[in-house]
Design a protein around this nucleic acid. Sequence first.
DNA 1: CTGAAAGCGCTTACAG
DNA 2: CTGAAAGCGCTTACAG
Lengths: 349, 349
Amino acid sequence: MLTGVKEIARRANVSTGTVDRVLHNRTGVSEATKNKILAIMKELDYQPNILARRLASKKVLRFASLIPSVSAETEYWDAPIKGIEMAEAEIKQFGIVIDKYFYDQNDKQSFVKQSNNILKTPIDGILVAPIFIEESLAFSKLCNLKKIPQVFINSDIPNESRLSYIGPDLFQSGHLSAHMVNYLVASGDKILIVNISKEIDSYHHLMRKEEGFIAYFKDHQKKVKIIKTDITPDTDYPSVAKRLTEVLTEHTDVKAIFVTNSRVFSVAQFLQKTNQEHIFLVGYDFLPGSIEHLKNGVIDFLICQKPQEQAYKGIMALYQNVVLNGDVEPTYFMPIDVITKENYTSYRN
Amino acid sequence: MLTGVKEIARRANVSTGTVDRVLHNRTGVSEATKNKILAIMKELDYQPNILARRLASKKVLRFASLIPSVSAETEYWDAPIKGIEMAEAEIKQFGIVIDKYFYDQNDKQSFVKQSNNILKTPIDGILVAPIFIEESLAFSKLCNLKKIPQVFINSDIPNESRLSYIGPDLFQSGHLSAHMVNYLVASGDKILIVNISKEIDSYHHLMRKEEGFIAYFKDHQKKVKIIKTDITPDTDYPSVAKRLTEVLTEHTDVKAIFVTNSRVFSVAQFLQKTNQEHIFLVGYDFLPGSIEHLKNGVIDFLICQKPQEQAYKGIMALYQNVVLNGDVEPTYFMPIDVITKENYTSYRN
DNA sequence: CTGAAAGCGCTTACAG
DNA sequence: CTGAAAGCGCTTACAG
């Protein structure tokens, strides 16, 4: 009452409609009245009532999400969908709808196509997992031109003007993995790093983890031998098994294996089938297949970064910015969680 | 339009005021019209518009929080306050205010007094850390009589009708601690469990962790010797140091120490001062003093359970129930987080 | 037991 | 460039 648009209008000797115009930075207000109103707003420290605003406005706000589609090999992306849906349920009463777009993680063109589809629609905010660097950068630029705020999850793109990144600090997560492995090995032991990925592009992502892992042992008193192998482009189980057989035949003394992504379940499967469960195994992500191997002891640790929460927080960051006009942290590193046989039951992915 | 109170009123041939009366289960409506309106609501699957409701209603909703006050020894309780304030900032636009009450963790009477103070005010929901079992039970009963929903954090009270418990699964967290210690010790090693607490009552809480810890090694192939000591009622540093000196003089071969609460920082301090950093150390909670000792390697692991998020979620659960009339999970176990030198920087307490 | 009217704090056409 | 009026979907007195 003492601070609403009515009061501002009264003090400025204008109608509430005019106040509303400057509030939303719309055209059709003289500089003079605009400045007068702005001054009064500042004086009153005017805070719009979001309830009233959303109730009065019939305009629905549209957010779009663009993430990889779920497949047998990319079950991981189930969690972000859930996160998006949770956020949607929470904010739909504010007149927000979320259009969900998916692309094929192994096909850049599908990303380009879907991002173009999004830009054809009127959209107020975008949540995207920018797996393909160049294509994502191009998309981001178009969004900036249209002044559409973007939030990135899962991995970041360097040097780009997005609203926020919400996801892992990849280097640190590799570092932590090494720290965990450090408890399992002795000086002189041999450690194998395994990257499993179809797309060369995704390597950027995995490489950061590998770097963090190697950096840990570089200046550590415990000296270990680190070897590595990339399994690409074929990543089906037979390909994984074939390569691991080769490597582990050449290096019969591998004490621990670090897999840089969720494909750790394939490696676990292999170790189990070949009775090599004595090799310590550390990998990524909270997937049913991996949890099974955590239970039966083939996998020792999983590093997880709450993909569901990443997406949830991503949508809420858009909401915070677009609906509440609030500030958003430009970079929000998710906690790096260590999952073991002992705590997986209460883990919220 | 097709589903609001107006439409219901039209179909039932009554005014919106009457619809509002049955909506809020107020008196002064004949059974007949009430049933008619109820039927139409069900038919339409009527969902009230929360925005409109909160905007129209001038009634503010009051939640109360009742947790231990912060002191040098109980810095831990800083985090829940932050969580409460975060939630408050988020929901105050819905006309919710939160009254914060504090009690002395070492004084049951202060809990009784503060809980009585709360009940003197008109309150719509309560968040409480029920450290004192009997007093909390009594308080809970009074709340139930007044139909005030209660959410518990930090620790649960058995067999009581609360809206929700949000906090650790204590037994499991002890179990996980043992799992971590297991990586650090060998068969035959000696492990010391340390409970540090002023109030005997708090032991219930610590005992559950101890039980989980011991249970882990009970049916484990690796046989270890577990000894324990309780430091009570004096818990200042000199008392801790004195007792540890005694124990570690008697048992010169202790390989690892498990402290069942945040007082691990006192133990760390002692180990550092007495040059016994070679003893592995595992404890609880993300406090600055402990983080320092995590950094310099005196503490190996901290087990944390996001006290800030517990309180945040607790308030949001009340909001969910009271404002949105939504369902709330009766028990929500927080993830059991493992914090090390490697991942503490990105941990959100 | 029930209804008519005003109002919550905004936004939205429409008219000038 | 600006204002008057209606309306978003509820709740709140007040009158009967």
